[in-house]
Design a protein around this nucleic acid. Structure first.
Lengths: 366, 366
DNA sequence: GAAAACCATGTGAACGATCAAATCGCCACA
DNA sequence: TGTGGCGATTTGATCGTTCACATGGTTTTC
């Protein structure tokens, strides 16, 4: 007896209205403001919505509301120079958390020539309301421009250029490094060197600071053992080689990235030594490479970062949502303990069960 | 003199029409069917479009055209068990190629309980017209369902369950393995073993077949040297250990994945041997791990795969676009040559310049 | 006991574009 | 001169929803 959806395509709000014997607007209210609808009517409308498998047409909503509830995410076309795929994992977590914020993500490729151009285009097409920035480099024009235009955005990574901008969520690399140093101290290493990137990298400097502070707090030596290398394996190996030379018997090397840590491992192996037993190594990002090499590594809490990003993106300005500086954890593997983690037979410990060191609980909005 | 866009927000098609002294529809035609517009008018309209920075509202187009020109891409929430991030790279390439097909991508997280449910929801919301499937497993209900519903889709990976479906693009793993075996033969290995996954994996079986055919074509031994391991590092190491035992002096191991290859490298190192010089190793997917370990690996042409996927997605059915089986290339590194690629000093060859072996040119639609 | 307030629901317009069909001017042809 | 055809352009309707306001009925208020 029920009214059927019309022949062409899916049921619309009008079909539901007819079927339930009410007007469009009442159906709309049942969906968007149920408290305005009388209980009996509400139930009837909901029953018809269910029966007709009605789903609001998001496209029509976007047009009428003048809001897409969608955000652009620029994919990184430079496949190289980014061992780790951290951003890909971040995108996954963002996507998972999106429905909880009644939003979705649209991917796009930034124009390599004019970064702003592609953002402008996407924005003016009405397809997105704003952006999630994921690799803000030094001198990135986007944060300023977006703020100026009043476009909603959030950055994964502090906006080092302009500390007054508060639209960011980041991981506290300094705290992660600090914790790693103390872990190495507890594992019996007496000196901890640092292998970082050449000057000018805000992220790198932050991580280096955490190393220095860790040395001081945990009473270790090594503050003079500091080298840099660009993010390239051969250069890293060479730099690590010199560092190990100075390190002595009970030293360890803390690295600003897993790729640099890989260089250290190579340098260690080349000398006939063994990571962990002879020289400690800790990397950053806990990538596949770290897992493959059994290198301990500082892990970014990407799930929480994604959640905080959404909160910040949808902050009203008066709800007290502040930038989130999240504390990473340390995944401990064989490279940072002097005695093998497990019996050194054919079996190795399952990396997924590796001891995870929750440095602290998340340090989110207070 | 020029008409200004109205105060509220961006310029619309009506603003342009007024400014150029024509009607809405003429502006629309100038954009979508320029040949219908008189040259002078066209020029005038285009000038105003440019002057007012007019961009068509995609949302309004979607509603009126009853087509989103967008496709859903399900992200893989199981971060583990997928070393390689092949799908992430595929997504990047899809995104880059999207504008060329006047489309874009919307990411979404599949419901782990009911895979179809999340697809249905997204589809009925009108946000997407179809899907790009990227990890069709055995028994995946999606291809059938989508075909039945007449929903456009393309699968990255053959639909092994139902070979009659032609909505796919894939990489010819068999050919890649074949080429790898012949490369190993040319490098002086006499026997090539295979380390694959346990039975039932269509992809694994295909790669194994390529290995066998390669042995035969290049006159190598080793067809009896075959082991399997699940995609887990400790199991792979153990399996590799047994395989190497049987391999003898001038053998190599071909692996169905880089993770398995990592297991082989570990087993080799454990015996005090060296990959390449003593035992050859070739992996699959050319991931960061392979690069880090200097393991040769079969590389999937993801850019071409993405392009073919778009072509297939937008095929009319009469334009002769057929499924694309692309031939991978082999990235040769130290693990598959008996003499070191470079002087074994502190410098290693830049992996990005590593010799790339174009097995054949792409074997796309004829 | 009439004005004011409230509640549930309905009506017209609008969001910004495209589709389908109508109109207008101009030229050719009978 | 009237009819037909054609190219260029315009007009009206529509996509599916929400906004802003109107309606009608009941309850509260002074």
């Amino acid at each position: 007896m029920g009214v059927q959806p019309r022949a062409s395509g899916r049921a619309t709000i009008v079909d539901v209205a007819r079927a339930a014997g009410v007007s469009r607007q009442t159906v709309s209210n049942a969906l968007n403001a149920p408290e305005r609808v009388a209980p009996g009517t509400l139930e009837r409308v909901r029953a018809e919505i269910h029966r007709l498998h009605f789903t609001p047409n998001v496209t029509a909503q976007q047009l009428r509301r003048r809001r897409a509830s969608a955000y652009g995410f620029a994919v990184n076309p430079t496949g190289s120079a980014r061992m780790g795929h951290i951003l890909d994992e971040f995108l996954v977590e963002l996507t998972i958390a999106a429905p909880g914020h009644r939003s979705h993500l649209v991917t796009f490729a930034p124009d390599p020539g004019d970064v702003l151009e592609s953002h402008k285009r996407l924005l003016s097409s009405g397809l997105v309301d704003g952006f999630v920035l994921a690799d803000t480099r030094h001198g990135d024009p986007r944060p300023h421009w977006l703020l100026e235009q009043g476009v909603p955005f959030v950055s994964f990574g502090r906006i080092w250029d302009s500390p007054h901008l508060e639209q960011w969520v980041d991981v506290d690399g300094r705290a992660g490094m600090h914790a790693a140093v103390c872990h190495l101290a507890g594992s019996g290493y007496a000196r901890v060197a640092f292998l970082g990137w050449p000057g000018g990298s805000a992220v790198g400097d932050d991580r280096r600071r955490g190393w220095l502070e860790g040395l001081e707090d945990c009473g270790l030596q090594g503050a003079d053992l500091h080298a840099t290398s660009p993010q390239a394996i051969d250069r890293a190996t060479a730099a690590a080689d010199r560092l190990i030379e100075q390190l002595g018997d009970d030293g360890a090397v803390l690295c600003a990235s897993d790729l640099l840590a890989l260089g250290v491992v190579r340098a260690i192996n080349r000398r006939g030594l063994e990571p962990g037993r002879d020289v400690g190594v800790v990397g950053f990002d806990d990538t596949d490479v770290a897992e493959a090499l059994q290198v301990s590594s500082v892990r970014q809490p990407l799930r929480e970062a994604a959640r905080s990003a959404w909160r910040l993106l949808h902050a009203t300005g008066t709800d007290g949502i502040r930038p989130a500086l999240l504390t990473p954890t340390l995944t401990v593997r064989g490279s940072s303990v002097r005695t093998p983690l497990a019996a050194s037979g054919t079996e190795l410990p399952d990396p997924s069960n590796a001891h995870s060191h929750p440095a602290h609980t998340e340090k989110d909005t207070p």
